[in-house]
Design a protein around this nucleic acid. Structure first.
Length: 747
DNA sequence: ACAGGCTTCCTATAGACAGCATGTC
DNA sequence: CTATAGGAAGCCTGT
């Protein structure tokens, strides 16, 4: 089937042809035959790289390409990176057709407003949930909902969000077309039935995938063949990787810990140092130069950057979530440019943007889970890794190789994984945390309603299809929420309280909100101690924490118990052992955040707490959101610390002390520059207002003139605001003065 | 006396979503 | 009470 022949407006087809789309892949063709372009709901279950993104785009084009017709398209994906990647493509195509595309994720720096006016809105699942909670009225005229990676409905934490959002949108918009895209799953039919969709299933891939198991220097392929592997290093995974490199390809090695990722990369570097053949195989020549210099030019993260730079120049890379985003970016780009021959990575790389390699090496099929030891990963997780094998147009076939330790393990891997059956997707809606959050969200958006009406919203979830409506659970949870003071419940009638609505909008777990409010009660002052406020934010189930070293556990737990008691939570009675352990972690993390807010240099913090740049970023990002939420809750309940918490939000976000809060709000001015300005005597934006851009750029080396202009413009705006406020205050004082005179006269 | 190898004990273990704004002397 | 691997410390052995 050709693009030219599709029932789409000619203008739309012209744009597609310009982008190089001319012939449809088999799954795309099947989707069209199933009614994709007639507005039929469809579930497409097919492998990575089989062209699902074009199916999404076609659905969008079908709805938007016709001039005049009013229809909104929503595209939702599980990762910000996926949303951005997809949005780039959509924007270039839809905007040339005169349609507006908006991206909205929690990543505030990159949010584009005017969602209500956009024709296509591209979001993460949670952002879509958040928009529903805020009652965005335009959601009522969504005519096409595209859900990418819908197998996430089976995810313990994120699945419930996804299925509730889908259920709510289906209920709001009768006849809405749902286009759901999934990796291959075993119960795609059930998912299709849930969504009232037709099912398109396909195993077609643009590059053939061969899967095999390595043992004793032989790869046994699932299709019966065998390949010998040369021993070049002292590590099996690296030998299998080098085998692909010797064949002219690139290899992606998946490991299950960060340490291992770095370690294997280092081992390969050592092998290259000792063996000229290995060195020659990997050698990127001068091509690594630009990537290496990006890393070496950075002022911060010196140690990590040097390690990474040294490896990159040998054609080797590692990748995990501890890396700062610029570091990840460099590694990904270098791999894509074939500068890197071998990349060792944790599973981050499997879920994110498309980064295929000729050969994928699966170092282990086990993964550690706290409290349960190391466990075999799911077949679907393995398939996700394997799916990264094969670059269309560059590799004749993609290969996925599992490294087995023993003959027995090899056999198990072959039967259980290569030929293994995929697990069905099962709804996780009925988990305490998920349901209390979703029930509050629904109650909050319904206004006054009966419990039965609340339950009706959940009738269109996957859970109802698989198990039945969760009536008892909803009833029980609504009592819990009313104990928290987030809903009023009289008999069977429920309504969210003001605080409850705010909790739903802030997108925090109701338990988070409850604990914050209780803790704040014990801190009834305008300026509660900083570390207690940080602790309160970090103790919540929504927080990201870092793990303390084992040696500190005991001391931290004792301190945590005391702190909990001071905050009005009785240890071992209402706070269980598990939550005390969490509190110990929270305390340790609060300590780190305190260093951050006290402006300790980043590298010093990283070394002190034994963490990587990405970890600090993660803690800072979630903590800023939680402290903001705490500020809002304080405001709603009239708590005296509200104003201070507002400041604290900025302090946490930027890592500065209170005196820099105003300066750091200027664009291009972070913690370091703000401190330099302050020390130079510029203590507020109004102190800067008189400067010209050259002067500011000179004051802050490294700040470009354009950024300096932007910062100054903002400083001047803020100075004017300040001026106005003080004038108002003056005149108010003046009036008060007058009144007192009048009072005096009349008295 | 000491280098090198083996054993034992100890420690640490993947990832990543969410708020917020919007004009003006 | 789950599991694995690497690193450090401790011990033994051969020269």
């Amino acid at each position: 089937m050709r693009v030219e022949d599709l029932p789409l407006p000619t203008e739309a087809k012209r744009v597609l042809l310009e982008r190089g789309y001319s012939e449809l892949f088999p799954p795309q063709e099947e989707a069209v035959r199933a009614g994709l372009l007639n507005g039929e709901s469809i579930v497409v279950a097919s492998p990575t790289g089989s062209g699902k993104s074009l199916i999404a785009l076609l659905a969008g084009l079908r709805a938007l390409a016709e001039p005049g017709k009013r229809c909104r398209v929503v595209y939702a994906a599980p990762l910000r990176s996926l949303v951005y990647e997809r949005a780039e493509e959509w924007r270039s195509i839809l905007e040339s057709l005169g349609r507006r595309v908006a991206v909205s994720t929690g990543d505030y720096d990159r949010v584009e407003p005017w969602l209500g006016e956009a024709d296509a809105v591209m979001v993460t699942y949670e952002k879509l949930d958040s928009l529903l909670r805020h009652g965005a009225s335009w959601l009522a005229d969504v005519c096409v909902l595209i859900v990418d990676e819908i197998h996430y409905v089976g995810d313990l934490r994120r699945g419930p969000v996804l299925e509730t959002v889908i259920a709510r949108l289906m209920a709001m918009n009768d006849g809405m077309q749902v286009v759901a895209l999934s990796a291959t799953i075993s119960n795609a039919g059930e998912i299709a039935a849930w969504l009232g969709a037709r099912l398109v299933e396909s195993n077609w891939r643009p590059v053939e995938l061969r899967e095999g198991v390595f043992n004793n220097y032989v790869i046994e392929w699932g299709d019966g063949g065998e390949s010998r592997v040369e021993k070049r290093t002292r590590n099996h995974s690296l030998d299998v990787a080098l085998d692909a490199v010797a064949d002219g390809g690139q290899a992606l090695v998946f490991v299950n810990s960060r340490r291992k990722a770095v370690e294997l990369a280092e081992k390969l570097a050592a092998a290259a140092a000792n063996d000229s053949e290995v060195r020659r195989l990997l050698d990127p020549g001068g091509a690594a130069g630009p990537y290496v210099s990006i890393l070496r030019e950075r002022q911060e993260h010196r140690e990590l950057n040097e390690k990474l730079a040294r490896l990159l120049s040998l054609g080797i890379g590692f990748h995990h979530a501890g890396l700062a985003s610029y570091q990840r970016d460099v590694v990904e780009k270098a791999f894509r440019a074939r500068v890197l021959r071998v990349l060792v990575a944790t599973p981050t790389l499997a879920a994110g943007v498309n980064l295929p390699a000729r050969r994928v090496v699966v170092d282990t099929l086990y993964r550690f889970r706290p409290g349960r030891g190391s466990e075999p990963i799911k077949v679907s997780e393995y398939k996700q890794l394997a799916g990264r094998a094969g670059r269309p147009g560059l590799d004749p076939v993609g290969e996925a190789v599992i490294i087995a330790r023993t003959q027995e393990q090899a056999w198990e891997a072959l039967i259980g994984y290569v030929q293994g059956e995929l697990e069905p997707i099962v709804s996780k809606l009925v988990s305490e945390a998920a349901l209390r959050s979703q029930v509050l969200a629904v109650v909050s958006s319904l206004g006054v309603a009966t419990v039965a009406e609340v339950a009706r919203v959940f009738e269109r979830t996957l859970y109802t299809v698989q198990v039945g409506p969760p009536l008892e659970e909803i009833d029980r949870i609504s009592w819990t929420l009313s104990e928290y003071g987030f809903i009023d419940r009289v008999g069977d009638v429920v309504e969210a309280t003001e605080t409850g609505r705010r909790v739903a909008e802030l997108y925090i777990d109701p338990l988070t909100g409850h604990r914050m409010l209780r803790g704040l009660e014990a801190l009834h002052s305008e300026r509660p101690p900083l570390e207690r406020l940080l602790f309160l934010a970090l103790w919540s189930p929504d927080a990201t924490r870092i793990r303390p070293p084992r040696g500190l556990h005991l001391a931290l737990e004792m301190e945590a118990e005391q702190l909990l008691e001071d905050l009005g939570f009785t240890p071992y009675e209402e706070v269980g052992e598990a939550d005390i352990a969490v509190a110990a972690e929270a305390l340790y993390t609060a300590d780190m955040l305190l260093d951050w807010v006290m402006e300790k240099p980043e590298d010093v913090i990283l070394a002190k707490y034994g963490i990587d740049p990405g970890d600090l970023r993660g803690v800072v990002e979630t903590s800023a959101w939680l402290v903001y939420s705490m500020a809002q809750l304080a405001r709603v309940t009239g708590h005296p610390a509200a104003a201070y918490l507002d400041k604290l939000t900025v302090m946490v976000k930027h890592g500065v002390q209170e005196e820099l809060v105003e300066l750091v709000k200027l664009p291009g001015i972070g913690r370091v520059r703000a401190r330099r300005l302050y020390e130079a005597g510029y203590r507020s934006p109004s102190d800067l207002a008189g400067l010209n851009p050259e002067q500011l750029a000179q004051l802050l080396r490294g700040l470009g003139e354009e950024r300096a202009r932007q910062a100054l413009a903002e400083a001047q705006r803020s100075a004017r605001r300040e001026h106005r406020v003080s004038k108002e205050k003056l005149s108010a004082d003046g009036r008060r003065g007058q009144r007192s005179i009048l009072d005096y006269l009349s008295g």
